[in-house]
Computed example of a mutant assay.
Amino acid sequence: MKKLLSALIFGGLLISCNTSDKSKSASTENVENEKSKEVVSKIDKQLKPIETDEDLIATALMAAPAESRATSKVIGYNMAGEFVTLKEGDSEYIVLADDPKKDGFNAACYHKDLEPFMARGRALRAEGKSADEIFAIREAEVKSGKIKITQGSALHIYYGPNTSYGPETSKVDGAKLRYVIYTPFATSASIGLPETPSAPNHPWIMNPGTHRAHIMISPLENKEE
Rank of each mutant, 00 (worst) to 15 (best):
P194T: 00
A66T: 15
F185S: 01
S170G: 00
A107M: 06
N162S: 13
K48A: 08
D21G: 01
A108V: 12
L155A: 00
K102C: 05
M206T: 10
T19W: 13
L114E: 00
F83A: 07
L5H: 09
N207K: 07
I181N: 01
L8H: 01
S25K: 12
I57F: 08
D113P: 01
G174H: 09
L177R: 10
S153L: 06
N222K: 13
V95F: 05
P200D: 07
K48Y: 08
E168Y: 09
S198P: 00
R125K: 13
E54D: 15
F135S: 02
T19L: 15
P184C: 04
A58Q: 12
E225S: 14
V172C: 10
A140P: 00
K42M: 13
S170E: 14
E54K: 15
K102I: 13
A126P: 06
K3W: 09
P65K: 03
I43A: 12
Q46N: 10
E32Y: 13
R212S: 14
Y182E: 09
T169H: 13
D44N: 12
K112H: 07
Y93S: 03
L193N: 01
A136M: 10
D53T: 07
N78Y: 03
A140H: 07
E225N: 15
A119P: 00
G128C: 12
R125G: 04
